[in-house]
């Protein structure tokens, strides 16, 4: 289950966010790149590195993925990571984590989980690799947290959003096996 144990060997996780550059090169762990969308694929946006990104218009309208990510985050993640990615007494604030975590690394942690036990403050993130409610929305959760981390999106529910495109609906259904 916890195949990414190499990533968890750090003793500095008491500082929550400090990520150990072990199996992934330090370069890819640096701050995320420019979030400006350069590609629009039926309502899903990508930055120049090809990573999913948010698209928030000046009037506050968010793309569907960001909105969906808000919902899925607050169903699957907030029980540990707190409302709006702000952290809890026992899990890190993801608005900080995302500052030092790129898309690939984010995926690795969600799929594989991570552990930091001992020291009277045991922290364990489960593997969500088999959870369709997370995996089918992984990009959505990522872009939501990316927007929160970049301070492009405030706390609370986005007030205005783009509509869900037929392609997104079809992809979602296929992923959920419906």
């Amino acid at each position: 289950m916890f195949s990414k144990l190499s990533l968890m060997r750090t003793g500095a996780v008491a500082l929550c966010m400090a990520l150990a550059p072990l199996s992934v090169s330090a370069q890819t762990l640096s701050k995320q790149g420019d979030p400006t969308p350069v590609k629009d694929e039926d309502g899903k946006y990508f930055d120049k590195s090809g990573a999913p990104t948010y698209n928030i218009k000046p009037d506050g309208t968010v793309d569907w993925a960001t909105y969906s990510g808000y919902r899925r985050y607050h169903a699957e993640c907030h029980v540990c990571h707190g409302p709006d990615g702000m952290g809890s007494t026992y899990a890190p604030a993801l608005i900080d984590s995302l500052k030092t975590m790129d898309y690939d690394h984010f995926q690795e942690v969600v799929v594989g989980g991570r552990q930091n036990v001992g020291g009277g403050n045991e922290k364990v993130m489960p593997s969500f690799g088999l959870n369709k409610n997370v995996m089918c929305y992984l990009d959505d959760i990522y872009v939501y947290l990316r927007a929160r981390s970049d301070d492009a999106l405030g706390r609370a529910r986005p007030a205005k959003r783009e509509d869900k495109t037929p392609v997104i609906t079809a992809t979602e259904k296929a992923c959920l096996g419906e």
Partner: peptide, 22 residues
Amino acid sequence: GGWAGIGLAAGLTDPNAGLGAV
């Protein structure tokens, strides 16, 4: 800690007060 440690650690916002009510 407990559930109180999730919801209240970071403080709550009033969603009806609009965005940025942190």
